[in-house]
């Protein structure tokens, strides 16, 4: 049995609109529609899609704060909306835009309350606190009220908070939003280590595709409530008609390079850009170019997954 099993999961909302002075019409919106996927223990899954695609609705159903209107979800063998509190002991949730810490209290007090809420055994609590405080560099901040923390500090504080009770699954909703590059990098490193060392399953929704590139072996793309792609990151690139780019610097300016298997998309002086399918090998192209032209330099650019995903959405 998979850790997370989602079968034909649906959730519709009825939106009432004014139509004239007294009449109202209702429109049924399918936020999530016949969604199915499995996530195994220890996976790191990126869950992405445009705004309003149904990402948050899915997470709400997986954590049990919203019941499904059709289909089923099973998380760690529990039915989330019926066994919300039992499930809550086994999962951790981190929102980039919300905090689970207490605004007026020092971090230490928030952690102390969480210890009681989750009834964390003393030894586990001390070990987790020591580990996470060290790794997330929170040592000097433990006695600072949360309202005085910077966004990055608060985010680290929130992640440590979500992990105190050793959750099997960690849901992260836009965890790097608003963080600077250095903070983002450190956070990703921490999450990777968490997954490798403790086997924590990670499900991540984000608009930051670098999060996905850095963390996720698998990506589920959702649009209009339905999964439009589910697979490893490289095949997402191959899937979206993505092309790789061979950038050629010639010694002298020349007319567009004509070789088989690639086409010139841009010329700028002696530099030319050649697009070729993401699935194809670059080696024969390089050989052809090198045989026919005086080449000063060559480089290959991977497709930007942002482009790939945009193409998927556009379908």
């Amino acid at each position: 049995m998979s850790l997370i099993e989602v079968r034909d999961l649906s959730r519709e909302f009825t939106i009432r609109k004014r139509a004239g002075a007294f009449r109202r019409t209702s429109v049924v919106k399918h936020a999530v529609h016949d969604l199915s996927f499995d996530i195994e223990a220890g996976e790191m899954v990126g869950y992405i899609g445009p705004n309003g695609a149904g990402k948050s609705t899915t997470i709400k159903m997986l954590t049990g704060i919203l019941g499904p209107s059709g289909g089923s979800a099973l998380v760690a063998g529990l039915e989330p909306s019926r066994q919300r509190r039992e499930l809550a002991r086994r999962i951790g949730v981190v929102f980039g835009q919300r905090t689970s810490l207490w605004w007026d209290l020092p971090l230490r007090d928030s952690y102390e309350l969480l210890r009681r809420i989750y009834r964390i055994p003393d030894q586990t609590f001390r070990r987790n606190l020591e580990d996470h405080v060290a790794l997330l560099d929170l040592g000097d901040l433990m006695d600072t009220p949360v309202r005085q923390l910077s966004l990055g500090q608060r985010m680290r504080g929130d992640i440590a908070a979500a992990l105190l009770h050793d959750p099997e699954i960690l849901y992260l909703d836009e965890p790097t939003i608003g963080l600077d590059v250095v903070s983002k990098g450190r956070l990703r490193e921490f999450l990777r280590a968490l997954n490798h060392e403790r086997g924590t399953t990670l499900m991540l929704t984000t608009h930051d595709l670098q999060d996905i590139e850095a963390l996720c072996d698998r990506v589920i793309v959702i649009d209009h409530g339905t999964a439009v792609f589910d697979g490893p990151l490289p095949s997402l690139r191959a899937n979206g008609d993505a092309s790789r780019t061979l950038v050629v610097d010639l010694v002298d300016e020349a007319s567009p390079i004509a070789i088989e298997g690639a086409r010139v998309v841009k010329v700028e002086g002696p530099r030319q850009w050649l697009a070729f399918p993401a699935g194809a090998s670059a080696a024969p192209l390089v050989a052809q170019v090198a045989a026919a032209y005086d080449v000063a330099d060559l480089s290959i650019h991977e497709p930007d997954i942002e482009d790939v995903i945009r193409k998927l959405y556009a379908r």
Partner: peptide
């Protein structure tokens, strides 16, 4: 109003 109530609901309490 802000939706932060979600955080409260995620807790086993």
């Amino acid at each position: 109003r802000t939706g932060d109530i979600a955080v409260d609901l995620y807790r086993p309490v």
